[in-house]
């Protein structure tokens, strides 16, 4: 019974809203959803590991406000991101753009996999160890007998 109650309560809790102050939200729910999606891809420069939607920093609140202003003014998602990167650089994007300077970053999982694969193949392809010499075989037999 208590388990059922717990499940019901957990279901009723719903997701925590990114912004705590409803006055910040845009009146149009579709626009607000876009603003939240965009904001969650933009880094808060003060804390550096949170998005501006998640951060409680003053600058993050200002930037959330600007994202909403620009969306309300009719900017596309790409225009809002461009507005941010022209001021704060590529670092402001939590999902970096793919270009020459970030190619290594994006390619690193594939490179790691290829390197591991190459090592495995090399090990497999290596010649098996040569058979034991007569002397080694004798020594081995002796050790096995001792052990028993």
């Amino acid at each position: 019974m208590s388990r059922l109650l717990l499940v019901l309560l957990l279901l009723a809790a719903g997701p925590a809203l990114a912004i705590s102050d409803p006055r910040e939200a845009l009146p149009d729910p579709a626009q607000e959803q876009r603003a939240e999606a965009l904001g969650s891809q933009l880094r808060c420069l003060v804390c550096q590991n949170e998005s501006i939607e998640d951060s409680g920093a003053d600058l993050a609140r200002d930037l959330r406000g600007i994202v909403r202003q620009r969306i309300a003014a009719g900017d596309s998602d790409a225009q809002v991101i461009a507005w941010m990167t022209s001021r704060y650089g590529e670092f402001v994007r939590l999902r970096p753009h793919f270009d020459a300077s970030t190619a290594l970053l994006w390619a690193s999982p594939v490179l790691a996999l290829l390197l591991a694969g190459a090592l495995v193949l090399r090990r497999r392809g290596a010649a098996p160890p040569p058979p034991l010499s007569a002397h080694e075989q004798q020594e081995l037999d002796r050790l096995m007998r001792e052990d028993v």
């Binding site: 420069l45 003060v46 600058l59 200002d62 930037l63 600007i66 001021r87 704060y88 650089g89």
Partner: peptide, 13 residues
């Protein structure tokens, strides 16, 4: 006062 010019400069603190 609003910090908007600072944001145009990319001030983060």
């Amino acid at each position: 006062r609003t910090g908007r010019t600072a944001i145009d400069f990319g001030v983060y603190g």
